[in-house]
Amino acid sequence: MEHKQTPILSGIRQRCGACGEGKLFKGYLKLNDACPHCGRDMTAADTADGPAFFVGFGVLILMAPFLFLVPMSPLPVGLKILAMIGVGVAVTLLCLWLLPVAKGVLLNLQLHHKAQEASFDKPPRNP
């Protein structure tokens, strides 16, 4: 029995939301124009800045306590500087690791739900 992947799970795996097999990316964040396995068109969706916002916000929530506690700790200044550099490196690596995952999830959700850009060209309907 074939198990259909959800858009979220296939996005986490960075695979096509339709077949669950084809890779979404041909580079770090560069999308394939179509799924190499099933041929699904991936140019119909644009995640814009959504993945960067969600990743940045999530990482900030996780790392904010360290950004407040390290400067207030009773460590010598040299160790505080090293700890802050370590926190900066951790934030950077965590963002770089999560960004393709978030982009894959948002892209698959947009394609799954056939999301389109908002259009306000139509005049309002009269009641």
Rank of each mutant, 00 (worst) to 15 (best):
G104W: 02
V101R: 00
G50A: 12
V55L: 10
W97Q: 06
G20T: 02
V105G: 05
S10L: 03
L99D: 09
P51V: 01
R40Y: 09
G27V: 10
P71E: 03
L9D: 10
M72V: 04
N108G: 10
G78P: 14
L107R: 02
C35V: 09
R13W: 04
G56R: 08
F66E: 02
E21I: 03
L31T: 05
V91I: 10
L75G: 12
L106D: 03
N108T: 08
A83I: 00
A48L: 10
R15E: 10
G27H: 09
A34L: 10
N32M: 11
A102N: 01
G86L: 01
P74I: 13
G58F: 03
C19H: 09
S73C: 04
L67N: 09
I12M: 07
A34P: 07
T92L: 15
A45E: 03
I8Y: 06
A18F: 15
G88T: 04
D41H: 08
L79Y: 14
M72R: 14
V101E: 01
L98R: 12
A48P: 06
L106T: 02
L31D: 03
I12K: 01
F68E: 07
E117G: 14
H112F: 05
L79M: 15
S10M: 06
G17F: 06
G50K: 05
L111P: 00
A115N: 14
P74M: 11
G104C: 09
T47D: 04
F66H: 01
S73N: 11
G88R: 07
L109S: 09
K103H: 06
C16M: 05
T92V: 15
D49C: 14
K103F: 00
G11S: 12
N32Y: 12
L98N: 10
A52V: 00
K80R: 15
V91P: 00
I61R: 00
L69C: 01
N32F: 08
G17I: 01
L9Y: 02
I8C: 05
C19E: 03
L62E: 15
M72W: 11
C16K: 00
L111K: 01
F57E: 07
V105R: 00
C95G: 02
V55I: 14
V87L: 02
L29I: 04
P76L: 13
I61G: 11
D46W: 14
R13Y: 04
A44C: 11
L69R: 02
S10D: 00
K103T: 00
S73F: 08
T47L: 09
I81T: 13
Y28K: 14
A45S: 15
D41M: 02
C16I: 05
Q110S: 15
A90S: 08
L9S: 13
P100K: 14
L96G: 15
L98T: 08
A44G: 10
G56K: 06
M42P: 06
R15P: 05
A52K: 06
D33W: 13
